[in-house]
Nucleic acid binder design. Structure first.
Lengths: 340, 340
DNA sequence: AAATTATGACCGGTACTAGGA
DNA sequence: TTCCTAGTACCGGTCATAATT
């Protein structure tokens, strides 16, 4: 394998100095169009490609942003990561990923360390688990960072979806259907989002003076865990409505209800959270709360770039959640209830 | 911001030469343990971190692998990318992602160009669309590459799931339930996998001497497109069994059937493809064909590393697909058919 | 002589200066 | 002036080689 062409090679082929080649590559205005053409032709001819290691060495800029993510099989993080990539690229950055399947302080630290080794210019952390928050304190010194769905005092600017309002809207919507109260299938204990959704749900019930059912059901975001919770809920004849902390768990609940002969929405109303693409096709179509994950990703990059460019940065940015009403939560008119 | 510590700083603090520091970092045996300790202490004290740009410049190795992916919202590619990251990291490589939402020759070329700029040492391309194949011919010259689910003569070693056998198994399983023939809801025209699944399906029907229904239904992998196909299938009273090219589309079919009052599995049998985590909780639980996406990712890195290390590499590696039988495809015994 | 350690060239760019057309 | 050449000092490592125990 021949050694790759260098700037000097291009320069001598084009009959200019290496300095001029550099100017052309960096879009300096101080190059005559005609000269620029000659240089570009030489670049083309030699298949020259700038050595980014050399460039990074002298400019002290890696042109790379880092992304740390956990639970990458989940719809939310995956979608957000994708949006991050797009936005970062459009801003002229490469993206390096450091993700792990499960999070604990050790793996988060390791992931941050890997990114630090690469001298990334900024880091986006998607770490909605509580135990991530402590490790976040150790974000590399001078490196700008943004946290998605993190804790208010995690030390870095945050971008987050308004989980509390989303959960409140869902719960209020269920109460509006005329039920006495709403049960909740919560997400895992360690997740901040799970807490926020519990809070929104509880708040609305309390404000409405409704009994707050004991929180007995905690899933792990999976359909299987929702199914288990659904079996228990189906046993309880007083249950009229259930707010489930995400869509896959809601799918599990729907299946459990159906197996136990409890019809949705005739007997029990169900609302999910996330609005995964499939939820409109569950049986019945699922009412849910949409989170705009792509917006989350884009805004995190906006905040990060602002920091890199040295602007003062808002401490946080909120993305609203939006209730999407479908069949699973609409109580049929009592008159039509048994006609079908 | 103070300038970061350099090897020379560490060296003078430890009272050795920069060369010795380098040896310590590269685990050279030619360093007295006592000296090594001193150096490590100095590194710790200064918070020294090796500059990978400088290292890459002289070693001509970026320690980075590139991944190109499209349709990153789909379960398969996402899962595979994740496995790739894990495997690459374990092998001591960083991972740079270049993905786009939609693929065409231009975006693929752009993605490969971005990775080439970064001087990645190897590339994994996940590009199961037909139109990707031509652009694959332009894989950067000397850069090792592996293609996941690509065309046999795409020019690079391939790792792929045995789609044809998976589809054949699914179809055969349906015939075994006693139906006359099996209908198919295919994936998008441009996808190789869609073709392979059609082929496996058709093959089995032909071999069994069954009528091959005209291929009228083509979705885009989404539940919505499956729903549309399902509505049409529900109209046709002769349809006894449907093999759907992926799980989300199968979900759409199930919903359409249910809406039109055709029961699954009593009236129509359904089989999907992919085994997404939710499919066990569809109504009814979906029989499907599991693809081992993590294995796909791992094996692609194995092949890539082998190439990088200069070994001769098998042209391709196959990952088997596995039929997972659940409720949606099991015809109830005729005697119990109407009892419930 | 063998084991360590020190020295300087080099990787391929960028940034600067001085000066020519 | 405006554009460009020429030359050189970096950036922070690695490697080959020489020098020192």
């Amino acid at each position: 394998m021949r050694r790759a062409a260098t700037m000097g090679d291009v320069a001598s082929l084009a009959g200019v100095s290496h300095q001029t080649v550099s100017r052309v590559l960096n879009d300096s205005p101080a190059v005559r169009p005609e000269t620029r053409e000659r240089v570009l032709a030489a670049i083309e001819q030699l298949g020259y490609r700038r050595n980014i290691a050399a460039r990074a060495l002298v400019t002290r800029r890696s042109q790379t942003l880092g992304v740390v993510s956990f639970g990458t099989r989940l719809y939310g993080p995956t979608t957000a990561v994708h949006a991050i990539e797009q936005a970062a690229r459009q801003a002229g950055y490469y993206v390096s990923i450091a993700s792990e399947e499960f999070l604990d302080a050790t793996t988060l630290r390791a992931a941050l360390e890997r990114l630090a080794e690469q001298a990334v210019e900024g880091i986006v952390v998607i770490a909605p688990q509580k135990q991530a928050q402590s490790a976040l304190a150790e974000l590399p010194d001078g490196v700008p960072a943004v946290v998605i769905d993190g804790h208010p005092d995690c030390g870095a600017p945050r971008v987050y979806v308004d989980q509390v309002h989303g959960a409140a809207d869902a719960t209020r919507h269920l109460l509006d259907q005329g039920v006495t109260t709403v049960h909740h299938v919560a997400g895992p204990l360690d997740w901040l989002e799970a807490d926020a959704r519990v809070e929104g749900w509880r708040q609305v019930l309390q404000d409405a003076g409704r009994p707050v059912p004991e929180l007995r059901h905690r899933g792990d975001w999976s359909a299987g865990s929702g199914y288990a919770a659904g079996l228990a809920l189906a046993e309880d004849p007083t249950v009229e409505a259930v707010f489930v902390a995400n869509d896959p768990m809601a799918l599990g609940v729907l299946r459990a209800l159906s197996e136990r002969g409890r019809r949705c929405p005739e007997d029990i109303l169900v609302v999910g959270f996330d609005d995964v693409p499939e939820s409109a096709f569950y049986l019945p179509p699922l009412t849910t709360v949409r989170q705009d994950f792509p917006a989350l990703g884009r805004k995190s990059i906006d905040l990060l770039l602002a920091q890199i460019q040295g602007s003062r940065v808002e401490r946080s940015e909120v993305v609203p959640a939006q209730l999407v009403v479908r069949t699973s939560s609409r109580r049929p008119e009592p008159t039509t209830r048994r006609t079908r």
